[in-house]
Amino acid sequence: MKIKPLQIIAHIILLLGVLLMVVPIWISFASSTHDSVTILTEGMKFNLGDQLSRNYNEVLNEKGGWSEEVTAGKMFINSFIMAFGIATLKVVISAMSAYALVYFRFKLAVPIFWLIFITLLVPLEVRIFPSYKVVSDLGLTNSYTGLVLPLVASATATFFFRQFYKTIPDELLESAKLDGASTWRFFIDFLVPLSKTMIAAMFIFMFVYGYSQYLWPLIMTTSEEYWTVVMGMKIIFTESYEGVAIPRTAERFAYIILSMIPPVLVVVFLQKWFIKGLIQTEK
């Protein structure tokens, strides 16, 4: 096989892209294996140090926060619950509302669709005060429900599901109907399996979206019990260390590395579905 110059250029560009992505992560990781003092005096590191287990152990188990109650581990759990809840509910609700929009041919389907679409213009950050008011009136501050609920509607996902459902031939529905499938069964037995890849993709996007929420959990939670990873990044390990004011840089790097793991896991896990759906053309 002859290697064309164009291919070489393409590979160089790809490699540069990979470097651009990977190097900062590597620096963070390498730095997280040193002593904070080393980093403070010598700058960030490219090589591995010998403090890996100590730093990570500390990050996971040390109690932080103002009241010294919340650990990083707890924050990971909170973030996971929040991201998982948001992603799951977003996917379920969007898929179902798209189903209603496409298959229940009621007169208002199109205006309602556009109404949903318009909500893209008002993200949570814009309506954060009214949202807070509603949630606090419902008594949901400092609860997982409060963290998740205001974020579960998704115009984007509804749009994608709607476009996908529209490509499914009508005969499939008709055939299923004649085979005795109820409205609900058609959704479960046909649309869900047919949109597996779409569901996986949406889940990944929405998981990352939920995981990286910052402002909402910050406003929503007063109890450290509900702190999330992203909030923690700002707050944790900023205080002085055993009375001596040395910034705990190494621990913070360890924390950052750990905070990347859950989204990466989700992508890696769902990627299998992704690719499966891509190579197995269904029609």
Partner: peptide
């Protein structure tokens, strides 16, 4: 779904999955 009729479509409409 309750008529107990079966139909064969021009494009067959088999269940792809």
């Amino acid at each position: 779904s309750e008529r107990d009729v079966a139909m064969v479509f021009q494009n067959y409409a088999l269940y792809p999955h």
